[in-house]
Amino acid sequence: MAIASFGVACRNHLTVHRPPPPFPLIYCLRKVGKTPFASVATLVEPDNNCVNEEDGLVKGKEGVIKGINWKKLSAKELGITTDKISKPTRLVLNALKKKGYEVYLVGGCVRDLILNRTPKDFDILTSAELRDVVRTFSQCEIVGKRFPICHVHVSHIIIEVSSFSTSRRKSRNSSNSFSRRPPGCDEHDYHRWMNCLGRDFTINGFMLDPYAKLVYDYMGGMEDIRKAKVRTVIPADDSFREDCARILRGVRIAARLGFRFSKETAFSIKDLSCSILRLDKGRLLMEMNYMLAYGSAEASLRLLWKVGLLEILLPIQVWSPVSIAAYFVSQRFRRRDERSNMLLSLFSSLDKLLAPNRPCHGSLW
């Protein structure tokens, strides 16, 4: 199967692939708004207001957390040990720490360590300015214009290093109304919290201090891990309009972990699904490769179909005039038995050979 071109289609589960209308993006947004959410009962959890007596969180509308009780958790009690951090990552952490900078592991790698999974990669956050990071390592360059980070090359592996100063500039430029400084927090907590506020999902909002052996949870990520839920940090509509690539990342995370979307996140994905067409083809190919090449291809395809994204991403015709998405449906995509569908069976077999630290090459597609 080649994912070489991306057409435009937004009707869910049609058996006939029709040519796109003259204004595809406007058409898609209009059609999605009128389409009921497919299989929502299998994807979402109820989002009623609740009080968690254990952590003191009062949650109402998604993305709004009242009465925040920030958590500092023991990395040791969570089963996170130094040997689970890759050697190249430890070399970068140690080099920055020796120069007196604060260093943290952030994002999905901390989530995976908490879940006792092997992270795909490790991202580092530091108090050093990016130019100081460049001075620290012989093979390092700054990449990105809007939100620059450093790529540190260690043993043919790239370690991404971001700076608190960059995240502070990002928060000043953001229209996020939740960035007011909470009362009673010190400067260190405030800077960590502001960085986590810019994350996509609560379960990616962790920070790990590998030297103090503490995990900071400012966004309620542990609660959502316990509930096996994917929830945006800020209201889902705002989050996906800010960065539509988060829609595809959310699907990838939910498929890989076997988590469900919270109610608001699921409906926002459905409503804004066609916004992913704003991404360039290279980015779409990269996101599809992440879904297919790291051991969760079958689950990703099923979830893409359920949220109405499959025909947008894969309108490729396997035989005229039937698209791949229509083929899945015609071959009993609804059934859990992957053997009823040859293509899903192939992906299921491939998944058994792959892992986040053992992906296949993207040229396979």
Rank of each mutant, 00 (worst) to 15 (best):
Y327T: 09
V32R: 14
E102V: 01
L343D: 00
R135E: 14
T15F: 14
R252S: 13
T82C: 05
F347M: 09
E129I: 00
G362M: 10
S167H: 14
P24E: 05
R252M: 02
G220Q: 03
R302G: 08
F347E: 00
P356T: 08
V329G: 01
L292K: 00
S320D: 14
R252A: 10
H191A: 13
I142C: 06
A228R: 15
S167Q: 08
R241F: 04
G198Y: 00
S268C: 14
K99Y: 02
Y104P: 07
P148G: 03
R172C: 04
R192Q: 10
G67H: 09
E129S: 14
L197R: 08
R278P: 03
F201D: 02
D280W: 04
I276C: 02
F37E: 10
A38M: 11
C140F: 06
M291C: 05
G221P: 01
P148L: 07
S167P: 01
M194V: 15
T15H: 11
L310D: 04
L214N: 07
S349H: 11
R169N: 09
R283F: 12
Q317T: 12
G295V: 01
R135I: 03
G60L: 08
G184F: 04
P359M: 06
I234V: 15
K270W: 14
R246F: 10
T202S: 07
N204A: 07
F267S: 14
R168K: 12
L43I: 12
A299Q: 13
R172G: 01
F23N: 15
A299F: 04
